[in-house]
Write a protein that binds this DNA or RNA. Structure first.
Lengths: 207, 207
DNA sequence: CAGGCCTGTGTGACTTTATCACTGAACCGT
DNA sequence: ACGGTTCAGTGATAAAGTCACACAGGCCTG
């Protein structure tokens, strides 16, 4: 079922009209929703799948800022939509995703006509702001080994994950070598097994 | 003249009504607009002065996230206003400030009735999101000496600034010792002179 | 105005993280 | 099987964070 909760709150005639006017766009794993500098085409409503948003600094390093999943709204786009500025980050599809792209005109109309839509947008914005604030705190003050551990912990249930040390470094905003060394240490402690492009959790990974 | 550009865009009868219903609140240097955990009372529109927003991590360390000045909107409050969650950060007045506090009901009404108001809110949100993204990048990848230098550079014109190393550490999200050492090095290079609670720029501070 | 107190600053020793440079292993296509 | 490419491991060194403590400046109080 292709739907997005923020559209379900619309009053009936409007909802039907909007839904009939939008067709879902499919994006496969690895596709880029937008790149840094791109102008904003519309507000993406993520129906399913998973999209990560990351930025690359002047230094040339990248860091993942947050992810969007089912029922998420790409709030970052709104600012660009309003000011006409280009994106400062890029969005990469991780798990194949379907997206409604709401054009500027329709967005304005929905903001005008539905209090629930406005509420949904504001809530989404608030969450994103909070996420970023927490990320700042994490990057500024938390130790790398803890952060890496937590990242892995959230994925233990998958048993094996497919990711390179370089990608993991981008997740945490650090250098590949740092990730390699820390992972090696985890391996020495028996928490996981390393292979090229893969990390396998052992039963003894602490939970 | 006490006004805020986002209110000036309102259609005339509404603008007059809103303005007559709001009286500016005065906050002196050092006053706390809100603390972490506080519920949100309304949307603060900053008329003048300067307010810094900072958060304290689990680690007990703090970092300044951004500042608000004349004509700014405390977008952070909107999320809290919508979800009813408490603030995750605190706002401290630096230069005496005057603020319109827009209560929830009025905010909803303005969002409903003015497209320009909506635009202003969305733009403000977009800017804040961009600021935070840049901060993440800065904290994750930039060298401390450069960041400290830039922070000082932005204040060279004041000649002397009154700030402790501890406060400066919070500005940058680092440890006091790191700031002390870097400042000492700047002093050795002749860029500035240090005194208890003060930093004096010399003519040779590079610009 | 001497002494005590609090806050702010300086610094050594050590750990963690980042950077640089390079090696070798694993995989891919032909 | 070979050669190229991507990935991972590691030593050396620099930058930044942590811990512990000494001491200096300003302020209050007797």
């Amino acid at each position: 079922m292709l739907q997005h909760s923020i559209l379900e709150t619309l009053p009936e005639p409007l909802r039907r009209e909007v839904l009939s006017g939008l067709q879902p766009l499919h994006f496969e794993h690895g596709r880029i929703l937008f790149r840094a500098g791109d102008p904003c085409q519309g507000l993406p409503l993520v129906l399913n799948g998973s999209v990560k948003v990351q930025m690359t600094g002047l230094s040339g390093h990248s860091i993942v800022l947050y992810r969007m999943g089912a029922d998420d709204i790409c709030t970052l786009s709104i600012g660009c939509l309003m000011t006409g500025d280009g994106f400062r980050a890029e969005a990469v599809v991780e798990d194949d995703a379907e997206v409604f792209m709401v054009p500027r005109g329709l967005f304005d109309r929905l903001m005008d006509q539905s209090a629930d839509f406005r509420l949904g947008i504001m809530e989404s914005y608030g969450r994103r702001l909070n996420d970023l604030m927490l990320l700042v705190e994490e990057v500024a003050f938390r130790r790398m080994d803890e952060r890496l551990f937590q990242w892995l912990e959230a994925r233990v249930r998958q048993g094996i994950i497919t990711i390179t040390h370089q990608e993991l470094a981008v997740e945490l905003g650090t250098a590949r070598e740092v990730v390699s060394r820390l992972l090696k240490e985890f391996e020495r402690k028996g928490m996981l097994r390393l292979a090229r492009g893969k990390i396998e959790f052992t039963g003894s990974f602490p939970r």
